[in-house]
Design a protein around this nucleic acid. Structure first.
Lengths: 191, 191
DNA sequence: ATAGCTCTTGAGCAATGCTCGACGAATGGA
DNA sequence: TCCATTCGTCGAGCATTGCTCAAGAGCTAT
């Protein structure tokens, strides 16, 4: 197998395993045995466990960004709606992995915090771009950024809690959840 | 040293170390060498690293609850304000440790997730109790709980980002931050 | 066929989570 | 006073795991 393919395979396996275990419980042994190779080979491609984790986490971030990318050809409000729907769907489908990524990943390891922060910043930027706020009404950028960032934490938490409920006990639909989130964003920005 | 004292000492050391390292980088060796005892002795009191972590994290949670406990003899709105001020102060003073607790702790390890969830639930309950909402205006409890929970994520994120700025670059005071948070809560509940 | 490049491995080191048997000091009946 | 029991403590050692190193195996190119 070529170097590039092998690397991709290993990252893919990492992403798969992330679904069932928090990131720092991912053992190199489990990975290499799943891939059917020796431990040494993994270290050929990723100098340290650290680097491997970083690759896996980055891949997770990129996947999230790809799956929630708005379709620029549609009206802005629909773009926002669909972006959030995709976001909620993403969390729902891979709840465990997402929590690992978001929380576990962000759990104090500087390198992982950065990947997560960057992913979320990108999402926040996209939202800001979609909001279509007149220049005059804009608060200082830092302020704005902080609020949207925190609002993302709000939506994320809602989605995590909501998707954690058994399907029967969810009182609202994902559509409702997204609608509420958008309303919340608009309201919060007016404070 | 008595068994009880030793246990407390070890947990105390864990809390201290949490300030500088994420929880899963806490090494048993570092702990025992700080305490001046042998590795075996720690395992006498805590059957596994897991159990030890759990003890440390629980202690962190209890400390947070203790330091943000509202003073029941004061007016409710002041209780809420002071509770949040204490919350922000807590995060500011031990930012690193708090992130470890919140994120690292919540990072997929079921046992830690539970400790964190319980801590946050307690805080959310306190807030609900302080809100003083007429029965008739209450939404279904689950709904209510979810929103307050998510609102906590909002405040937490604001506080973490805010306290991460160098003091010169903080455009607002902690008072402003708390006032904004309370406004946000009241607004969100009306949606 | 020889050289060289790339993918691969096994042996082994150091650190670490964890176990086990035992030592020493205090406590408490006989 | 003596023996036994209990309790806090430790050192040796096992298994796992993150990581290194030197070398093997297959392919291509001269």
């Amino acid at each position: 197998m070529s170097a590039e393919d092998r690397k991709k395979q290993l990252v893919r396996i990492g992403l798969m395993m992330l679904r069932e275990q928090p990131i720092h419980e991912l053992s190199i042994d489990a990975i290499v045995s799943e891939a059917g190779i020796s431990r040494s080979l993994l270290f050929q491609y990723f100098p340290s466990k650290h680097d491997y984790y970083l690759a896996v986490i980055s891949a997770a971030g990129r996947r999230l960004l790809r799956l929630t990318k708005p379709d620029a050809s549609r009206p802005r409000d629909e773009q926002l709606r669909e972006m959030l729907l995709a976001f909620v769907a993403f969390i729902t489908r891979r709840r465990r992995a997402y929590i690992s990524f978001v929380r576990g990943a962000a759990g104090g390891d500087d390198y992982a915090v950065e990947v997560y922060a960057q992913t979320r910043d990108t999402m926040a930027e996209r939202v800001l771009a979609l909001l279509d706020v007149p220049e005059a009404d804009r608060e200082p950028a830092a302020q704005e950024r902080m609020r949207v960032h925190a609002w993302f934490a709000y939506v994320e938490d809602l989605a995590i809690e909501w998707s954690g409920l058994p399907e029967g006990e969810r009182r609202i639909t994902d559509q409702d959840l997204v609608a509420h989130s958008i309303e919340a964003l608009q309201t919060l920005r007016k404070l």
